[in-house]
Amino acid sequence: MDKVPMTSAGFESLKEELRRRQQEERPRIVEAISEARAHGDLSENAEYHSAKEAQSLNEGRIAELEDLTARAEVIDVAKLSGDKVKFGATVKLVDEDTEEEKVYQIVGDQEADVKKGRISISSPIARALIGKGEGDTVEVAAPGGARSYEILELRWA
């Protein structure tokens, strides 16, 4: 059973989604199924089939969330430090071609959101950054071709 690294905020987010799906969505869907069942013939009852599909999707996500929370390895980013990039680090980069600066925090797969500046530990750019320090240059094989970045700043928190 592989551990799944994540920040405490990511873990809390997963726990909240699990709670919401179990305590709010599940009863709502069960109610929708019983209401649709009361309409009679199930073979041509679109509401019934829709509610059953929603139930299946919800139960699948609940199982996935239970698995993820059970295998979670919660890492408190506030307690991390060092001069090399690793999980939890916030890295300020500059694209050496465009001079565009970007700031990313390296987080677990489940909490990655590029729009919010959080990239997955398994992404190509994060894999290239791991083990590097301020001032280092990294080459990233991106879908649009190789990109070169310089690490301007490394911070924790």
Rank of each mutant, 00 (worst) to 15 (best):
A142W: 03
E59V: 05
Q105V: 02
S43H: 05
L129V: 08
G108H: 05
K52R: 15
E59I: 01
E53Q: 13
E35L: 14
Q105Y: 10
K15I: 12
R26S: 14
Q55M: 15
V85H: 05
D113Y: 12
R127Y: 03
E134A: 04
K15Q: 15
R71Y: 10
V94P: 08
E53T: 13
R71G: 03
E139M: 05
D76T: 10
E25V: 10
E66P: 10
S120G: 02
H49T: 13
N45C: 07
S56G: 14
E96N: 11
S120I: 01
E96M: 14
A46V: 14
G82R: 03
R118G: 09
H49N: 13
I75F: 04
V77A: 04
A128K: 00
S120Q: 04
I130N: 02
V103R: 12
A78L: 08
D83S: 11
E16G: 13
K102C: 01
K115V: 06
F87N: 00
Q110P: 06
T137Q: 02
E73T: 11
Q110D: 07
A72C: 07
V140Q: 06
L129N: 04
R28K: 10
R21K: 12
S123M: 02
I130W: 01
R26M: 12
S123K: 04
V103Q: 10
E96P: 01
E99H: 10
S50Y: 13
V103I: 15
Q105L: 01
E134V: 14
K115W: 12
I106G: 11
G88E: 06
E53L: 15
V85N: 08
V30S: 07
E134R: 05
G82P: 01
V107N: 07
E111H: 02
E73K: 11
V74R: 10
P27C: 07
S34Y: 15
G88H: 07
G108Q: 07
S56E: 15
S123C: 02
L65D: 06
V103E: 15
L93Y: 03
A78R: 08
E101I: 03
G133K: 06
G60W: 06
V30F: 05
R118M: 14
H49Y: 09
L68D: 07
E101H: 03
A63C: 01
G108K: 03
D76H: 08
L57G: 07
E111Q: 13
G131R: 00
E96V: 10
A38L: 13
P27E: 15
T69G: 11
I121V: 07
A54N: 10
A72K: 08
E24N: 13
E64H: 03
E66A: 13
L57K: 15
P124F: 05
R26C: 08
T98R: 09
L42R: 04
A141L: 02
Q23N: 15
L18R: 09
V91M: 12
R118E: 04
A126W: 06
L57F: 07
R20G: 11
K102Y: 13
A141Y: 02
E139H: 02
D113S: 07
G117V: 02
L18D: 05
S56N: 10
D41Y: 08
K15S: 12
F87W: 03
E47G: 15
Q55D: 10
R61A: 00
D76Q: 08
S122Y: 02
D76W: 01
A36V: 11
G88F: 10
L80H: 06
S43E: 06
